[in-house]
Amino acid sequence: MMKLEFIVPITINNTAHPLPDDPRTSLLDFLRRDCGLTGTKKGCDHGQCGACTVIVNGQRINSCLSLAVMHDGDSVTTIEGLGTPDAPSPMQKAFLEHDGFQCGYCTPGQICSATAMLQEIANNMPSDASESLDGPIKPTPEEIRERMSGNLCRCGAYANIIAAISEVAEGDAA
């Protein structure tokens, strides 16, 4: 069987990176180890906690359940790409203000997820909590809770996370 030559690199936070040699490398391990982007967290490594959530081509995914080699040509945004300590994103600021975290380990995943999630609502994508499958979707607390349920927080900061996201959603709507 031929070995694939990856001509197109993967773009992470607007920087091109060569793909790993070992096809077993998950996108998560690639980010954390090969790219030094440890903001993306490994909580379960099996798509069961959401700590590894990153945004690929505009969509949030669990980076632990994707192989890095499958992503040549893709554009990945991690928590480091959303904002920095000097210039945090509105969502990052809202999490800080509302204390939407405690230990901080699930936080980058929550923030990546929330950032993509608000775009999904803006695009009127329905969820399990949507009363109707068509028509405009509003970022109600119940909609946000359902859509964020793929991001576990064991410290139990959920109520504050919803408050943080709601504030950003209201800001977006205004």
Partner: peptide, 19 residues
């Protein structure tokens, strides 16, 4: 086929459904 949409949305999470 709202049944299909509902069933899919009742499963997993948005992150997983995106893949």
């Amino acid at each position: 086929y709202p049944l299909l949409a509902r069933a899919i949305l009742a499963g997993a999470t948005q992150q997983l459904r995106n893949k």
